[in-house]
């Protein structure tokens, strides 16, 4: 509603434009530039046209990394969003315990990403890590309970088992990031007027109906934000799984960003990596747009009905 009348105000935007140009537009253009050429160092470039893009798009390695990425992202979304909402619902509404819960919830968010990775790396080691050792013992106990022969005995070792590695990577992300969903959902819940709950009680609504018809609709906006943030963050995740598993065992947890770094710096395949970056960027952008439109579409439809 409020309009700017003073056009001088645009000058105030200049520093931001400059910053955005320096840290986004120019590097992005450089990457686009690289992606169209081939180089072997010494600042020698050869025009490659779309060859790099063709190579990326037809690469089996890229396809599997992309698939892994989607599986990872959707798994953590499917866990973190409902879990976050459930925790927010279970938290006390007011009083000292509400503050205690909020602080506890915020703690994982304060820990640097590489520290999280290192922490879980040690925590999950099968011989000395608390989690790893416990799971390993548990697996051993179950095996002996089922009388499995020694060569089929269950073990837990994320450094050489694909399933275990995925388990730890996902558990780590859930531990690290569910709090964000909790905090957003909690804020959404707090904004609901008490009269709604009273009305629902008097209307004889069940706990489920209260959730379905009052809490969920009122949390809608913050949940859209939560899903978008968690999607972007997990889709471009690098540090934590890299520190935890290094993308292994084999390539089992090599997500797109890890694969990208491997191509660019490990194999010094700059043109290929640049093309991959651009494609990676476009995929993220497209999926974000898709999410956003899908989730706000019903809103737009409602507005239209007015």
């Amino acid at each position: 509603m409020t309009k700017t009348y003073n056009n001088k105000a645009w000058f105030l935007v200049l520093p931001v434009l400059f910053l955005v140009a320096m840290n986004a537009v120019i590097p992005l253009m450089t990457v686009v530039n690289y992606s169209l050429q081939e180089t072997f160092g010494d600042n020698l470039f050869f025009w490659a046209g779309t060859a790099n893009y063709e190579a990326v798009l037809s690469s089996e390695r890229f396809h599997t990394a992309l698939l892994r990425q989607f599986i990872f992202t959707f798994t953590i979304l499917a866990i973190e969003i409902p879990l976050g909402v459930a925790i927010a619902l279970a938290m006390p509404k007011s009083g000292p315990w509400a503050s205690v819960c909020l602080v506890l919830m915020a703690l994982p968010l304060l820990i640097p990403w590489n520290v999280v990775g290192a922490m879980w790396n040690i925590f999950s080691l099968p011989d000395i890590g608390l989690l790893g050792w416990s799971l390993n013992s548990l697996a051993g106990a179950i095996s002996s309970l089922l009388n499995l022969p020694p060569d089929q005995a269950l073990t837990f070792n994320y450094t050489n088992q694909i399933g275990s590695a995925w388990f730890v990577v996902i558990l780590m992300d859930v531990w690290h990031w569910t709090s964000l969903v909790v905090l957003l959902a909690y804020a959404g819940l707090r904004s609901i007027d008490d009269a709604y709950y009273r009305a629902a009680k008097i209307d004889g609504a069940s706990r489920w109906a209260v959730f379905r018809y009052i809490q969920l609709p009122k949390m809608r906006q913050v949940l859209i934000i939560a899903v978008l943030l968690r999607f972007i963050d997990s889709f471009i995740v690098y540090t934590e799984p890299f520190v935890l598993t290094g993308g292994g065992p084999g390539n089992a947890t090599t997500f797109l960003s890890i694969d990208l770094v491997k191509s660019a710096l490990g194999e010094f395949n700059l043109g290929y990596a640049a093309a991959m970056s651009v494609i990676y960027f476009l995929i993220s952008l497209f999926v974000c747009w898709l999410f956003y439109t899908l989730m706000t579409q019903s809103d737009a439809k409602r507005e239209y009905e007015q």
């Binding site: 007027d193 009269a195 709604y196 009273r198 009305a199 008097i202 018809y213 009052i214 609709p217 009122k218």
Partner: peptide, 15 residues
């Protein structure tokens, strides 16, 4: 077994 109407409208938005 009572019904109540509040000062500000309380409706179930999605219904």
């Amino acid at each position: 077994n009572i019904a109540q109407v509040f000062q500000f409208p309380v409706v179930y938005d999605t219904m």
